[in-house]
Design a protein around this nucleic acid. Structure first.
Length: 121
RNA sequence: AUUGCAAGUCGACUCAUCGUUCUAUUGGUGCUUAUCGCCUUUAGGAAGGAAAGUCCGGACACCAUAGGGAAGCAUAGCGGCUAACAGCCGUCGUCCGCAUUAAGCGGUAUAGGACAAGUGCAACAGAAAGAAUGUACAGGUAAUGCUGUAGUGAAAUCAGGUAAACUCUAUGCGGUGAAAUGCCACGUAAACUUGCGCUUGAGAGUUCCCGCUCGAUGCAAGAGGGUAGGCAGAUAGAGUUUGUUGGUAACAACAAACCCAGAUAAAUGAUGAGAAACUUGACCAACAUCAAGUUACAGAAUCCGGCUUAUAGACUUGCAAAAAAG
């Protein structure tokens, strides 16, 4: 099982991210929402993580939540390997207004990844 | 040894598992070449005292080798430090506190030039703090606050106070800001519409005027598209530590040793266990033990020097205070 999360699995294209906001489908499981679109020419799924500045004023808090989201994704991304082999661009957005424990974030992440796999099969 | 105040120093440890980024490195691999890319082995580095606020000052880059004037901004005893400053050090004055016959001692206080030009402002008291008005007594006049005294007040047609009031004086300041700037790659388009202009000069040089320079495959606006990737800038520096010398000090000089983040939708972590400190509760004469909780402020973004603000806890030094013991 590959738990690594190198640079090429990070979503960086501004254009793709704008498309995710405008035309991406969404799944929600508090406190996390995911926007996703299938992308044909990707070798792997790519993911980005967002914590709104509106909810968390301090950079330290935003960094910590992003790290926790990243960690949850890294340890559970294998759930996404579906039969069709379609790859996705993913944008995880933290909706909560408070800091939550890692266990709660992990639970939401597993839930989301499972639902995403089922819906796209 | 307790509490309070002030100054300074530090400001998050250990292990396990799974990861991120940079540098070096082992082995492999990729149409061609490769100093390049990818996979991989090992080793090492990886946030702060404020990284914050973006308030000052610089370095650096570009714009006329940055010129004259206006406007604007900043500074304000004196001397020094510094690359520079609105910073720091020293000192004088003022203010506050303590003490004394007096000299003096201390301070986390102090934007501290000019009210000898003009304008403005001023509590209470007072008739009146000035284009106004006139109380009492005395003197004087043709007549009148015309004169003196009293009275109010810090100050009364004699002026004074106030410039973190306008202002004046002296000194300094060109503008922009790492999204600067240079190069490479990709891409379309020297495309379309409208307006202006082509030496009788549109427009640009980032407040305005003058001047100077550039300027025609030009400039401005619109609609619709493309790109938004890489390298340099950019991490060895006004660098850090230690020592010696000079100086009251800020600081400087010299010597030795050291290399200490370099990301870019943004790395430096996540999870678990433990240790430590503190608080509360249980038990207890007390220690110990057990349980629960807390462990701050906060995340580099071109780089330095300051300032300001936030900060749990630990340690050091100084001052003050009460009680107990000796």
């Amino acid at each position: 099982m590959n738990f690594r999360f190198p640079k090429k699995e990070k979503l960086k294209s501004k254009k793709t991210i704008e498309r995710l906001f405008s035309e991406g489908k969404t799944l929600k499981k508090f406190p996390v929402r995911v926007n996703y679109i299938p992308v044909e020419n990707y070798e792997t799924c790519k993911a980005a993580f967002v914590v709104p500045k509106r909810n968390f004023k301090l950079a330290v808090d935003r960094n910590r939540i992003k790290r926790q989201l990243k960690e949850a994704y890294r340890l559970h991304k294998h759930l996404l390997n579906n039969r069709s082999g379609v790859k996705f661009a993913l944008l995880f957005i933290y909706l909560g207004g408070k800091k939550l424990s890692y266990q709660e974030i992990e639970k939401s992440m597993v839930n989301l990844l499972n639902r995403l796999t089922n819906e796209t099969d």
